[in-house]
């Protein structure tokens, strides 16, 4: 019943607040399962996590009640009372995919390949559609970073396909 009254934005925030409450419960559950090594000191390693768990759930509950009473958070960069902008899950998904591919490919295909894909993907998510130029910029960025880090700063990055091509 109450749910009908709150806006779409409110429902999202309610879910957020609810997960915070559940996070607290989860931390408490994890703490209760903790394997405590023999000969522990006066204060159990469980005491502090239990306090954090209780605090997290409490804060979650207060936030839930705040949202139910219509006190919603103001999105970053917006003024209170601005119209609600429905998030574009499509652009977010593209962005997450670009980052995710970087994470997966980094140690398989090497830094240059995965960073090029990531850079290209993010600029695509942000609306750039000049594919050839975007690709060139991505590649130049990845190569510049790769060489300034590996050769200039001696910080190793996975070479991947380029293993042996550029030496080292």
């Amino acid at each position: 019943m109450i749910l009908q009254k709150i806006s779409k934005q409110g429902k999202g925030e309610l879910a957020f607040a609810g997960s915070l409450f559940l996070l607290g419960i989860f931390v408490a559950w994890d703490t209760s399962k903790m394997v405590i090594p023999q000969g522990s000191s006066i204060v159990s390693p469980q005491t502090f996590p239990y306090m954090v768990a209780a605090f997290t759930s409490l804060v979650g509950l207060v936030l839930i009640s705040d949202v139910l009473r219509g006190r919603l958070g103001t999105p970053d960069g917006a003024e209170p009372g601005d119209p609600f902008i429905a998030p574009s899950y499509k652009t977010m998904a593209i962005l997450m995919a670009a980052i995710g591919l970087h994470v997966i490919l980094l140690e398989i295909a090497g830094y240059v390949v995965s960073a090029t894909i990531c850079f290209f993907g993010v600029s695509f998510a942000f609306g750039s559609r000049k594919y050839l130029k975007d690709f060139a910029v991505s590649l130049i960025f990845a190569l510049t970073v790769y060489f300034s880090f590996t050769k200039g700063l001696n910080i190793n990055l996975p070479a991947g396909f380029f293993e042996g091509v550029f030496g080292k």
């Binding site: 990531c118 290209f120 750039s128 960025f141």
Partner: peptide, 11 residues
């Protein structure tokens, strides 16, 4: 351009 900027920051 901001799409390159955020691509660079993210990477």
């Amino acid at each position: 351009p901001s799409h390159y900027l955020y691509a660079g920051i993210t990477t």
